[in-house]
């Protein structure tokens, strides 16, 4: 098992946000975490990578318990995280952005170099010296993914990669994600757009009010329109 989460509970100050969340990602698998805005998707991701201070439960990554580790140590262990919105460093050039993400290679994950990433995202190669702030939204989104791949992760958490992007760019995003998967990177992707999730993932969880309320394959989800309609508000 690549990632295994059990009994995850998270709080922000007095507010209890996540309730006994449990999910797994197998080696080489791409899993979708679906749910509407405010359901707890981002909090789940932030809890896994240690950005939420008050969390309890069991979080195992490659068999190691990471629930008490600080964010940077978790990420250095090979768990990449791409947060919501693009959050690239607008003052830094494309190459400098990639430099911030650079980590030593590891044995159980595909090894990315700057040049390999420029092959995967040819747009970026043409603008190596350009400050991130002067790139379009789609290019910025590609850069955030490339930047995380510079850390040679074996698992990547992608938080709402399609939000705020035009349909065309979203399609490019689908391709990039499929390439990552083919290379052997495991993925956990949070989404609201079911169309998008269907294109990239094998399995899905649905989260609602901080609780996992469905778990199964995409086909199983399609067979349950009641669940889909109740929790995704399509």
């Amino acid at each position: 098992m690549k990632l295994s989460v059990e009994n995850l509970n998270s709080h922000y100050g007095p507010a209890h946000i996540l309730f006994d969340v449990a999910l797994d990602v197998a080696d080489g698998e791409a899993v979708a975490l679906l749910g509407r805005n405010g359901a707890g998707k981002s909090t789940t991701f932030r809890s896994i990578v240690g950005l939420v201070g008050q969390r309890s439960g069991r979080i195992e990554f490659e068999g190691r318990d990471i629930s008490n580790q600080p964010t940077h140590a978790i990420v250095r262990g090979g768990l990449g995280y791409v947060p919501e919105e693009r959050r690239i460093f607008t003052d830094l050039t494309v190459e400098e952005n990639l430099e911030v993400g650079r980590q030593p290679p590891r044995n159980n994950a595909p090894r990315w170099t700057r040049e390999r990433l420029f092959e995967l995202f040819p747009n970026l190669a043409e603008m190596r010296g350009r400050p991130g702030g002067r790139m379009s939204g789609g290019e910025q989104q590609m850069l955030t993914i490339a930047r995380t791949l510079m850390g040679n992760p074996s698992l990547v958490l992608l938080d709402e990669p399609s939000e705020g992007l035009s349909p065309k760019i979203v399609e490019q995003m689908v391709e990039a994600i499929l390439t990552m998967k083919k290379e052997g990177v495991s993925l956990l992707v949070s989404e609201q757009n079911l169309h998008f999730a269907r294109l990239i993932s094998d399995r899905a969880y649905i989260i609602e009010r901080g609780r996992i309320c469905f778990s199964g394959t995409m086909t199983e989800l399609d067979a349950r329109p009641d669940i889909r309609d109740a929790h995704l508000a399509l």
Binding site: V49, T71, V75, R76, R87, F89, V100, R147, T148
Partner: peptide
Amino acid sequence: AATQDRDMVAALG
């Protein structure tokens, strides 16, 4: 990078 977004820097290890 941290000058601009310190949490993101942590999230990159």
